[in-house]
Design a binder for these strands. Structure first.
Lengths: 333, 333
DNA sequence: AAAATTCAGTAAAACGCTTGCATTGCTATT
DNA sequence: AATAGCAATGCAAGCGTTTTACTGAATTTT
């Protein structure tokens, strides 16, 4: 009852040519006479032959599959990247194995290993932080790797980002120019380079240029969630902040709602700029001004870079910084 | 310079046993003397041997990989399902190949074929509608398939859902009990069974039970987007609706904002119940009352069902309906 | 017209693993 | 002591491709 799987060999026999010839027509190798090609294609069609990619992978040592490690698909920031990755992957005939890591180093290492065991041709890693264990795995393998939306302090592997220093600097400067003397910075863990290093640096640079003193009671380290935002607003108020640059959209929505709940008028009494420009920023009232990171593009460019690496093409630069904008909405004056 | 890939054969030689034995210890086959096992494991460790899953796949005809077809990862509804799927998949040692389809039948067929070529052990399909072409592909292959969050009119393949008829009925009834005589239904294309068949049925049933006449000028067919919601509110107002059951959260946020923009007070002058209970519903002011579909669970259960099918276990029921709730927030009285 | 080159195609060796079957020692049974 | 039974291994045949040589034939060059 099980239909016997039909193989390249069957096609060869039916078309009375060798397997090699069938393989050539399947792979578009030009070294085959049009008449033969046609004959083979007919048989393929008649037999409903479908090449077995696993066998092909074993023989050719290529799987046309790339591994993608993502903290959580459910997070818009990452799913936007993922969408860019998948679209470009499809364009170049690759498929994606998607694995959620929850930014858990142990899971990451584990998943990395199964991905490598599955012989993926390349890897894209998303996540805010790269632990030493993960870095160790990276260097242990010679599979090309690109980081999407996270910083590579070592520049060992490829990476695609925006210039977080400049982005936060621009946002902060804008808030200062609106007349705020007490601009807060609200981010995730300062242990993550993106926050503790880059964003903080941009923030300080802006203060400095404006001749304002840095005050670390205006820097808030919190979790990226709506509820954390709600709570954070109270602290912001206590600290006397009249504006904030926020590292995550959900968090920003929480802060906004915290302000509204407290009867604080936005943007008149409190201004807000967030960082990721996800759809969320348009769904609140007032809509939230945001640094516009081209998330989809970061993913797309990362995947494109990876294709080049897998192809052993020359790479101009392993680290690519995309431009950013600030999309003005209604949480700033 | 390229390290030679080290194979099971190398391990066998170094441990002076046969490949078969190494294979056995790698696969946890009990038929190995503890002493031998230990020796082999040591060599594996020393040589840093990593089994090649592609070769394994070819030999065993199992890839421990399942294909997942998703309309758009960027959509919270689907990404929630996907997260459930991935978590359960991981639990059962499967990986997921994720492919975005944009609900485009042609892409779906294409992706389905490459997935099958890659010899996935099973497939999970998400999408509101199953075109004939897709259905044809489904029946052409004997790979197990489960639909997650979409209806299978034919019951040919497995599927996991909630009871949309009852859910919409409950929501509509609630709105009627709040005193609304003009309750609207706002969904996506009525051509999709979930809308034109199930939701509409539930809606009519509720009206009927309440002794209200069905009026098709209160049924709105639109796109699932924030902007569509904004526009739709105006039509709702024109039609004299004082409440609405909405099929998508982004859409609902649009309608809510449309109401607020028009100076209509929610829920006093207009009530709203949405369908997917994504995080979005908590991020608006007022927060939106929603049918609570256990999205994560639908994904998880779908994947669990698929594992059973892949394992050729007995299945109690191919079609599974999960329970739902209505989470009351502040767009209803 | 002979030699060189290109074209089409063949045969068979990988690719790295699983697995059914055969084999080898042992221990337990008679 | 002979035999059966079993646990532990080894052997080798696949799995379905790609790819490397290689071979004739046809075409071009000299």
């Amino acid at each position: 009852m099980d239909k016997p799987t039909i193989t390249i060999y069957d096609v060869a026999r039916e078309a009375s040519v060798s397997m090699a010839t069938v393989s050539r027509v399947v792979n578009g190798n030009p070294n085959v006479k049009p008449a033969t090609r046609k004959k083979v294609l007919e048989v393929i069609d008649r037999l409903d032959y479908r090449p077995n990619a696993v066998a092909r992978g074993l023989a050719s040592k290529k799987t046309t599959t790339v591994g993608v490690i993502i903290p959580d698909v459910t997070n818009m920031f990452f799913s936007s990247l993922a969408r860019g990755i998948d679209d470009v992957a499809t364009m170049y005939k690759y498929n994606i194995i998607l694995a959620n890591s929850d930014e858990n180093s142990q899971k990451e290492v584990q998943v990395l290993n199964t991905l490598l065991a599955k012989q993926v041709d390349g890897l894209i890693y998303m996540g805010h932080v790269i632990t030493d264990e993960v870095r160790a795995e990276f260097s242990r393998s010679k599979t090309p790797i690109v980081l999407a939306g996270s910083i590579d302090p070592d520049e060992q592997v490829g990476s695609v980002n925006i210039d977080y220093v400049e982005a936060v600097k621009a946002a902060t400067t804008q808030l200062i120019q609106d007349g705020n003397k007490q601009v807060a910075l609200v981010t995730g863990s300062l242990k993550q380079p993106i926050n503790g290093e880059f964003r903080l640096k941009g923030y300080k640079a802006a203060l400095n240029e404006a001749g304002l003193a840095y005050d670390d009671s205006l820097v808030f380290e919190t979790e990226y969630s709506y509820n954390a935002g709600l709570k954070t607003f109270k602290q912001l108020q206590k600290a006397g902040a009249t504006a904030a640059v926020v590292g995550d959209d959900e968090l920003a929505v929480g802060i906004l709602d915290g302000a509204l709940d407290a009867g604080v008028s936005v943007p008149d009494e409190f201004e807000l700029i967030t960082s990721n420009n996800t759809k969320l920023t348009e769904m609140t009232r007032p809509q939230i001004t945001s640094i516009d990171q081209p998330l989809y593009d970061i993913g797309a460019v990362a995947m494109r870079l990876l294709t080049k690496m897998m192809n052993k093409e020359d790479i101009d630069a392993k680290t690519i910084m995309l431009g950013f904008d600030i999309t003005k909405r209604h949480t700033t004056k």
